[in-house]
Design a protein around this nucleic acid. Sequence first.
DNA 1: CTGTTAGCGCCTTCAG
DNA 2: CTGAAGGCGCTAACAG
Lengths: 370, 370
Amino acid sequence: MANIYDVAKAAGVSPATVSRVLNGGSVSSERAARVRAAAEQLGFRPNRVARGLRRQRSDVLALIISDIENPFFTALARGVEDVARASNLSVVLCNADDDPEKEAEYLDVALAERMAGVVIFPASLAETDVTALLEHGVPVVAVDRSPESATVDTVTADDENGAYAATRHLLDEGYRRVACITGPRASSAAMVRLRGFLRAHREGEPPRRRPRVAYADFRVRGGYQAMSELLDLAEPPDAVLATNNLMAAGALAALHDRGLRPPEVGVAAFGDTFWSQLVRPALTTVQQPAYEIGQAAAELLLKRRHTPDNEPQRLVLPTRLQVRGSSRRSAEAEPTTAETSPPLPTIAPTDRAGATGHGLARPRRPGVMT
Amino acid sequence: MANIYDVAKAAGVSPATVSRVLNGGSVSSERAARVRAAAEQLGFRPNRVARGLRRQRSDVLALIISDIENPFFTALARGVEDVARASNLSVVLCNADDDPEKEAEYLDVALAERMAGVVIFPASLAETDVTALLEHGVPVVAVDRSPESATVDTVTADDENGAYAATRHLLDEGYRRVACITGPRASSAAMVRLRGFLRAHREGEPPRRRPRVAYADFRVRGGYQAMSELLDLAEPPDAVLATNNLMAAGALAALHDRGLRPPEVGVAAFGDTFWSQLVRPALTTVQQPAYEIGQAAAELLLKRRHTPDNEPQRLVLPTRLQVRGSSRRSAEAEPTTAETSPPLPTIAPTDRAGATGHGLARPRRPGVMT
DNA sequence: CTGTTAGCGCCTTCAG
DNA sequence: CTGAAGGCGCTAACAG
């Protein structure tokens, strides 16, 4: 495999000149042309490994996610990628599969490969350990939640306000017994969303106490069971908020199997997926700005490469309530959309100047063939 | 950042000894312990970049897919990963986003990083060029279709027999005008599946000529429109085969909007996704062995690392028809499943010995929170 | 079993 | 603008 010495010899120049042609140093155009011709001729491909060793850094950043099957991550990945590519970085995805051990391996690889940075959705708050990366100067940005091992830049969605808005909407529609199907108590996301749900009840007019809460497992089956149990109550709920899309699917199936059809029972869910609009009636959802989260995370990472010692930031991006038929008792014609958070991202007081410019999501490409 | 010289000095040994401890050479246990202690002490992390340069190969393989949002790929990725990890290789995912240019960039990176191998779902038959990789000794395995630029190991699903079986099933159920909604003529997958559909008609009893075929775009909207147009015909079909899951979703929506409910109109689709079982009635699907395809691809890759000059193989893995309510006129109680291909993978005549052992899919983990 | 030595391919001073 | 030379960190020969 040809290297720069071969190219140099073929072009009649020094290896340094070849390197300069490759990296944009000043070379006379005549010699540059000779070098390019020789490189082409020899099928020369610069060896990034050698370059990485010499430069002590790579141009690849790792995105470690906990479940590749979750549509949230696919959008997130696009956001990271688009920003990274604009800065000539490649992104590789690592699927940790919700397994702290796998995740640790990938963190290890990222460090051993001296990657340009890591965006991580931590599999576990307690077990995910990014200190090694940080100690060795590899920037880390956490998405959605912050590992306990260290304070790092974090980007999250404003889940609490999202849950609040959805619950408030259900109450406003006239549902009187709004229940919540949420995730395990160990999940911070589950708890944050639940908090928003409860706050909406407290702040309602009149305030309502002790709304029904079912703890499930963020999965379809768990949603189904939780919904079934709720419906078996003496006073079953007339509306439900599911804190992720899989449990929502389960809840819908449970309703269907009992002949209950939204919006007879109101349904709202966290997480917009392509089937949210396909079910009939379409599903009211709290949309998480996954793409923007990815963008923001990548931007934080890029920024931190240049200012490694700044105080870690915490960005909170607004969620958005998409009202559809599943929660609309009143027969309005059009779907409506509403921001659920203040228009500007909330920034930790330490650094207010660093507002990450996250624009609109790029239009979602429809998926392709299977 | 500590290197092996630092560790060697701290442990009072030579760098070579440190290297041996790292890579399993023979070292006296006493010295090995000293080395490990020193490494721990210094927070030493072996530099894979340097190792890669020295060894002229990396332990990372790339999986380049054309659309991260497609569930087919997520299962595929798991298959690749599980096999690779068993051989101590890491897998990184590269999302080419159906864009030949992006894809070319990732191929470039894979070559420049001297990756251990590449599994690729080619974005384009014509534009995807893997010759550079091959020339430089990086093994490549194509999934689902083979790029024109070179002959490489390929793993595909037996789509034709899958389509045949699904169509045959619809005919056997007594549907008389079975239509097909397939993808663009430029897509080989669309054409292969269509071929199976047509064959089932020719071989039916009695053979039926000129079944209705609609060409759409593999997307939800296209499926909706195609179904609508079919229903507008003077003699509308009483059953339909959609050649991917997104068009199936569109077709179901179109049926729903006209008050038609499967199995009144029979529906079968390519590609099993988690919602296939959630819709009511559940959807009859041709299941593609995505996980096994990934496994087989990784195995071929590993094998080729050791035998680079063997004739390229072509593996065809069986699909499987999962009959559910959407196509069952007769009121049987239980869903049924059937292999649609011969039990053994079909192998190109050049190398019959190389049957890849692909076992059962590991149980699908339900997804987690969004 | 252990140490010495010589690169892997590239980039980046430093001289010219 | 150009070339010579050293070294990034590691491993594989080779000697001992």
